[in-house]
């Protein structure tokens, strides 16, 4: 009951099509504020499609179509009269592969501010520092803000992407398999960071790694063939799954 009352984001009756293929079927999910929600499932189950829908990145795919509603604080963000650009400022996204711009570290972080017409230099500088600190990267890069971001290590690049996201001032952060290309140590740092960030943000993470889901998330959803098979407290899903398919996936029988 508590979850419903505090829902930050809510997906209602979502159906998604790539051309004639129905990639998501009747998805209902409510995401509680200041928690981490993990989305797990085998490749091609629709979990990435679903998370991209939450900040309308799905629109980049030609020939895709969506039915249903996604509410952010009660406002339907799929409503065509709402600008996708505004949605993305409130709902940030970190991608599977770190994708810093081939610019300096400073420019990477300030980019999100300048495209949103922030001109005040002092404010931008303060924001860059603040974001880097929040992403636990400040100590490593404070002396080299003018360096090209591509010279950072993979794990640092991913934290830079998180910092870049934070600078815009989102309320929700979407992570699409953020550690898929990282080593275990970098992965550990990102997970630690997520637990820290959830105090101020609502986080949704897609992951292949079930241990990761178990470690960082409060709630878990299991997708299979475009359907949300099971959704509930992470602890319950991993210790006592109600659905046979969920159990089979979690115990490693397929996927």
């Amino acid at each position: 009951m508590h979850e419903k009352m505090n829902a930050k984001m809510e997906a209602r009756e979502i159906n998604f099509y790539y051309g004639a293929v129905r990639a998501l079927k009747n998805i209902n999910m409510s995401i509680t504020g200041n928690t981490v929600t993990a989305i797990i499932g085998p490749s091609g189950c629709g979990k990435s499609t679903f998370i991209r829908l939450l900040n309308r990145m799905h629109e980049l795919v030609a020939g895709s179509r969506v039915e249903g509603h996604v509410y952010l604080d009660g406002k339907d963000i799929l409503d065509p009269t709402i600008d996708a650009v505004d949605v993305r400022r409130s709902v940030g996204m970190v991608f599977q592969k770190p994708n810093p711009f081939p610019k300096t570290i400073f420019e990477n972080i300030s980019y999100g501010l300048t495209v949103n017409n922030v001109r005040d230099k002092d404010y931008i500088e303060a924001k860059v520092v603040e974001s880097l600190k929040k992403a636990a990267l400040w100590d490593e890069v404070k002396d080299r803000l003018k360096d090209n971001a591509l010279r950072l290590s993979g794990g640092q690049q991913q934290r830079l992407c998180i910092a870049r996201c934070l600078a815009v001032g989102p309320e929700v952060l979407l992570f699409d398999e953020p550690c898929a290309s990282l080593d275990p140590i970098s992965t550990g740092k990102i997970e630690e960071l997520m637990l820290e960030l959830k105090k101020n943000y609502t986080i949704v993470i897609v992951t292949h790694n079930m241990q990761q889901a178990a470690r960082v998330s409060d709630t878990t959803g299991f997708f299979l063939m475009g359907e949300l098979i099971e959704f509930g407290k992470t602890q319950d899903i991993f210790t006592a799954p109600k659905n046979k398919q969920t159990e089979a996936y979690i115990t490693g029988r397929f996927g």
Partner: peptide, 9 residues
């Protein structure tokens, strides 16, 4: 994608 996700037009 990175740019659009940051709210750039």
């Amino acid at each position: 994608e990175a740019s659009l996700a940051l709210g750039a037009t």
